[in-house]
């Protein structure tokens, strides 16, 4: 395997008195697309927030490796954080035009006159026709596409996506998937993708992890995960008959 982007050790995330995530050890390689699957409440979004360095783990370490430096949520500078972009499960947009929302991350970085980049990003998620609209009136799927566009425009080294296609029709699912793939293949971005759609995991991911009740039950290359899973629960999950 090539360079490591993330390493997790002895991670435990506890909310109140409940341990919602336990990851004894996990490495994520540069350039891979890792899909996280599992039932609702399993801890997928929690893992994503930890990878985004937005939360500090209760126990253990989540380390991001950038150009040979090891960075954690405690030590990450703003420049380090800006290598990561995350699309949240329930996107919240700013009450400005769609275009301004897409341009927001660039403006934060002091890049103001990037008109072409913004228009291109809008075009890529097929939102040009509503670029001047206020987000208040957007449909769920449109909001999700704005959220994807405002992250992708930043060309992050790490792209974290929390069910980015949950509200979308097949055409737009295909659109988003090709954007993630493009980001991965052209810029070598590492992606971690949460999805409830096992077919999507199969289409996009190089590795898939099944999370059940806070534990990673199985993590394997996509081929193996779907065709020769070690754990019977993975086999059950993949075939759609699921045991909780």
């Amino acid at each position: 395997m090539s360079d490591i982007v993330y390493s997790i050790e002895n991670l435990e995330q506890i909310y109140g008195s409940r341990t919602v995530l336990r990851v004894p050890s996990l490495q994520i390689a540069q350039g891979e697309v890792l899909a996280l699957v599992g039932p609702s409440g399993a801890g997928k979004s929690t893992l994503l927030r930890l990878l985004a360095l937005l939360e500090t783990p209760t126990r253990g370490q989540v380390t991001l490796h950038l150009d040979g430096r090891a960075v954690t949520s405690a030590t990450a500078t703003i420049e380090d954080r800006r290598q990561i972009a995350m699309v949240f499960q329930r996107p919240v947009l700013l009450s400005r035009s769609v275009r301004a929302n897409v341009a927001y991350g660039l403006r934060l970085r002091g890049k103001r006159n990037q008109h072409d980049r913004v228009e291109a990003a809008l075009e890529r998620v097929a939102l040009t026709h509503i670029a001047d609209t206020h987000p208040r009136t957007l449909s769920g799927g449109e909001m999700q596409r704005v959220a994807v566009a405002r992250s992708l425009i930043l060309e992050p080294r790490v792209l974290l996506l929390d069910e980015p296609t949950a509200n979308l029709d097949p055409y737009n699912v295909g659109l988003i998937e090709s954007l993630v793939r493009e980001q991965n293949q052209q810029f070598g971005a590492t992606s971690v993708l949460v999805t409830h759609n096992v077919f999507q995991a199969r289409r996009l991911a190089s590795r898939v992890a099944l999370i059940l009740d806070g534990d990673i039950i199985e993590i394997a290359p996509t081929e193996t995960f779907f065709n020769a899973p070690r754990d019977p629960r993975t086999a059950a999950f993949v075939s759609g008959e699921f045991v909780y």
Partner: peptide, 26 residues
């Protein structure tokens, strides 16, 4: 302001002051 906004701005690379500014604008 929607409490979900703050972490999302942070995830887009906003500094603390940029977040305050955005929240005031919201």
């Amino acid at each position: 302001v929607d409490p979900g906004l703050q972490p999302q701005l942070r995830a887009l690379g906003a500094t603390r002051w940029q977040i305050v500014r955005a929240l005031l604008l919201e």
